[in-house]
């Protein structure tokens, strides 16, 4: 399935159907991470139930050092 993740075109296996599975695919499931799906924030509690589909624009953001 083709997606746009952080501005990059990526292809993930068709078995990846939810946000939780997407994070697991990128090995990000243990990280502090915030997900935006087509410009809408997906709260942590909704990761498992939120479906992703062809062409979705996904932003994965995290915290970095800053002042």
């Amino acid at each position: 399935m083709k997606l746009v993740v952080n501005g990059e075109r990526v292809v993930v296996p068709n078995t990846v159907e939810t946000v939780t599975e997407l994070l697991r695919h990128f090995e990000l499931n243990q990280k502090v991470i915030i997900v935006e799906l087509n410009a809408e924030i997906v709260g942590k509690e909704k990761h498992a139930e939120t479906l992703i589909s062809f062409g979705d624009k996904i932003e994965l953001v995290h915290f970095v050092g800053g002042g």
Partner: peptide
């Protein structure tokens, strides 16, 4: 304090 940034999905480790 800290900042919020896109993460590099290809360097998740």
């Amino acid at each position: 304090t800290f900042s919020v940034r896109r993460m590099n999905i290809f360097e998740a480790g």
